[in-house]
Amino acid sequence: MRIYTDEIINAVCLHIADRRGVKPTDVEVQLAWEEQYGFTAEIWVQGRSQHLIESNLLEAIEQYMFREYNRRVFRSNITLDADDEEIYADIRD
C-alpha cells in the first residue's frame, strides 16, 4: 500500500492534535527532504513551530494506518520516499 503527501500530512496533523489537545485543523505541516537530515516536517501549532524528524513521521503514519484503515503496521514496514512531485510512504504487510 502507498500513501501520498496529503495523507502523510493528515497523519501528522491528527497525531500532533492528539498530543497537544488541539483540533487537527489547528495544525499546519510542511514536509521536506534534505540530504543531511532525510525526511522532516515543520509544524505550526498556535503560533509556535517545531521540527519533526523521520521517526516522528513514521510514528504518525503508524497510528494513522491503525486509526483510518484498521491496519496494524510497524515502523520497520514503512518506507518514506520521494519523487520529483511528492513524498510518499510505502507500507508493507
Rank of each mutant, 00 (worst) to 15 (best):
M1V: 08
R2I: 14
R2C: 02
R2W: 07
R2H: 13
I3G: 10
T5F: 05
T5V: 00
D6Y: 01
D6S: 12
D6I: 02
E7W: 00
E7Y: 03
I8Q: 05
I8H: 02
I8L: 02
I8K: 04
I9M: 05
I9N: 02
N10I: 00
A11K: 00
C13I: 00
L14N: 13
L14R: 10
H15C: 09
I16R: 13
A17W: 00
A17Q: 04
R20Y: 05
R20A: 02
R20I: 04
R20K: 12
R20W: 01
G21M: 05
V22K: 03
P24R: 13
P24H: 13
T25F: 09
T25H: 14
D26M: 01
V27H: 06
V27L: 07
V27N: 07
E28R: 10
E28S: 09
V29H: 09
V29C: 09
Q30M: 10
W33V: 06
E35R: 12
Q36E: 10
Q36G: 06
Q36P: 01
Q36A: 08
Y37K: 10
G38P: 02
G38K: 02
G38M: 00
G38H: 10
F39W: 14
F39T: 05
F39I: 03
A41Y: 04
A41I: 01
A41W: 01
I43D: 11
I43K: 12
V45W: 03
V45S: 07
V45I: 10
Q46W: 01
Q46M: 14
G47Q: 07
R48W: 01
R48Y: 07
R48L: 13
S49K: 11
Q50F: 07
Q50R: 09
H51R: 06
H51L: 14
L52D: 11
L52G: 05
L52I: 01
E54D: 13
E54G: 14
S55Q: 12
S55Y: 03
N56Q: 11
L57C: 15
L57V: 12
L57N: 14
L58G: 05
E59H: 01
A60E: 04
I61Y: 13
I61N: 14
E62A: 04
E62K: 10
E62P: 13
Q63R: 13
Q63W: 00
M65W: 03
M65F: 05
F66P: 06
F66E: 15
R67C: 03
R67S: 14
R67V: 07
Y69P: 08
Y69Q: 09
N70A: 11
N70P: 03
R71E: 15
R71M: 09
R71D: 05
R72W: 08
R72L: 11
R72C: 09
R72H: 13
R72A: 15
R72N: 15
V73E: 03
F74D: 15
R75I: 04
R75F: 01
N77H: 13
I78P: 03
T79Q: 07
T79D: 00
T79V: 07
L80E: 12
D81A: 14
D81F: 04
A82M: 04
A82G: 04
A82Y: 06
D83T: 03
D84A: 12
D84C: 08
E86A: 15
E86H: 06
I87S: 09
Y88C: 05
A89D: 11
I91W: 06
R92Q: 08
R92C: 01
R92E: 08
D93T: 05
